[in-house]
Amino acid sequence: MTMPDRRAVLAALGALSITPSVAFGSEYIDLEWTDLVPEGQPALPPVIQDLIQHDGPDMSRQQPVSHGVRTDWNGEIVRLPGFVVPIDYSGTGVTAFILVPFVGACVHVPPPPANQLVFVTTQTPYEGSGLFEAVNVIGMFGTASTSTQLADIAYALSADHIEPF
């Protein structure tokens, strides 16, 4: 991710973080990946069969077109399960990552549409168990267009809590 892109994402996340976080009890909205796709738009197929061509164009060029976003949960505290694709580290912990709906997304298969990817940042580095760890992320959610070398991303989540799935 280029520095201006990262600054824009951090600014957008900062705007989302104006309201204080709530406790991690039941005071969050449980989201599923299908909740992020606008009504009438196709959800991801259950099995992705096309592996990327490693000697072909970069993955962001193989990303399917996204057909809109849902703004229903902008500014809300949500919990969303997914898999970690690390972007930034602090020490041995991840401080920024792409939350993806299935193992291999953005690395071994073309990335999902932008409305099926979430850019997650956390002030407390997450010490995960490795690439593609399944996690639940709880925090402030919203739409925020971001571009990385791996994919275009339509959503952002400022994580207050990350736990193994």
Rank of each mutant, 00 (worst) to 15 (best):
residue 157 L to Q: 08
residue 95 T to V: 14
residue 94 V to A: 00
residue 116 Q to P: 00
residue 20 P to S: 08
residue 71 T to G: 15
residue 156 A to K: 12
residue 93 G to V: 00
residue 4 P to Q: 02
residue 154 A to L: 08
residue 39 E to C: 04
residue 5 D to W: 04
residue 51 L to E: 15
residue 99 L to D: 02
residue 138 I to R: 08
residue 99 L to I: 08
residue 26 S to F: 05
residue 6 R to S: 08
residue 96 A to V: 02
residue 2 T to K: 08
residue 136 N to P: 00
residue 23 A to W: 02
residue 121 T to D: 02
residue 80 L to M: 04
residue 23 A to C: 06
residue 55 D to Q: 14
residue 107 V to L: 10
residue 114 A to E: 05
residue 105 A to E: 09
residue 133 E to D: 07
residue 160 D to Y: 02
residue 78 V to Y: 01
residue 17 S to Y: 03
residue 104 G to C: 04
residue 96 A to L: 05
residue 158 S to M: 14
residue 139 G to P: 04
residue 11 A to I: 04
residue 44 L to Q: 08
residue 78 V to Q: 04
residue 111 P to F: 06
residue 106 C to P: 07
residue 115 N to A: 02
residue 20 P to N: 05
residue 127 E to L: 10
residue 160 D to C: 03
residue 26 S to C: 06
residue 21 S to A: 12
residue 83 F to Y: 13
residue 39 E to Q: 12
residue 9 V to Y: 08
residue 125 P to W: 11
residue 100 V to W: 01
residue 154 A to K: 05
residue 14 G to E: 08
residue 3 M to S: 07
residue 14 G to I: 00
residue 114 A to P: 03
residue 141 F to D: 01
residue 109 V to N: 07
residue 105 A to K: 00
residue 17 S to E: 14
residue 38 P to V: 05
residue 75 G to V: 10
residue 69 V to W: 11
residue 115 N to S: 06
residue 68 G to N: 13
residue 17 S to T: 08
residue 135 V to I: 11
residue 20 P to A: 12
residue 91 G to F: 02
residue 4 P to W: 01
residue 132 F to M: 10
residue 135 V to R: 00
residue 128 G to L: 01
residue 140 M to R: 15
residue 165 F to D: 08
residue 41 Q to R: 15
residue 51 L to I: 13
residue 37 V to P: 01
residue 40 G to Y: 07
residue 87 I to H: 07
residue 87 I to D: 05
residue 66 S to D: 14
residue 120 V to F: 04
residue 27 E to L: 13
residue 8 A to I: 03
residue 113 P to S: 11
residue 42 P to K: 10
residue 139 G to R: 01
residue 11 A to Q: 08
residue 3 M to N: 02
residue 23 A to V: 04
residue 17 S to D: 13
residue 57 P to A: 15
residue 27 E to K: 13
residue 79 R to F: 02
residue 62 Q to E: 15
residue 84 V to D: 02
residue 97 F to T: 03
residue 165 F to S: 11
residue 165 F to R: 13
residue 64 P to Y: 12
residue 54 H to E: 14
residue 135 V to E: 00
residue 20 P to G: 06
residue 133 E to H: 01
residue 27 E to G: 12
residue 20 P to E: 12
residue 135 V to S: 00
residue 112 P to L: 00
residue 124 T to V: 09
residue 108 H to P: 00
residue 49 Q to G: 13
residue 139 G to I: 03
residue 106 C to A: 10
residue 95 T to H: 09
residue 40 G to I: 06
residue 148 T to E: 01
residue 45 P to V: 10
residue 17 S to K: 10
residue 77 I to V: 11
residue 78 V to L: 06
residue 113 P to F: 05
residue 105 A to N: 14
residue 139 G to S: 06
residue 122 T to R: 03
residue 1 M to R: 04
residue 2 T to P: 03
residue 72 D to Q: 14
residue 90 S to W: 07
residue 149 Q to N: 13
residue 21 S to D: 12
residue 100 V to D: 01
residue 154 A to R: 06
residue 61 R to C: 12
residue 47 V to I: 11
residue 25 G to D: 09
residue 19 T to G: 03
residue 140 M to Q: 12
residue 41 Q to C: 09
residue 125 P to G: 08
residue 51 L to S: 14
residue 52 I to W: 14
residue 148 T to G: 06
residue 19 T to P: 00
residue 46 P to M: 06
residue 66 S to K: 11
residue 49 Q to K: 13
residue 86 P to F: 03
residue 105 A to D: 15
residue 21 S to C: 04
residue 87 I to G: 03
residue 165 F to P: 07
residue 17 S to C: 09
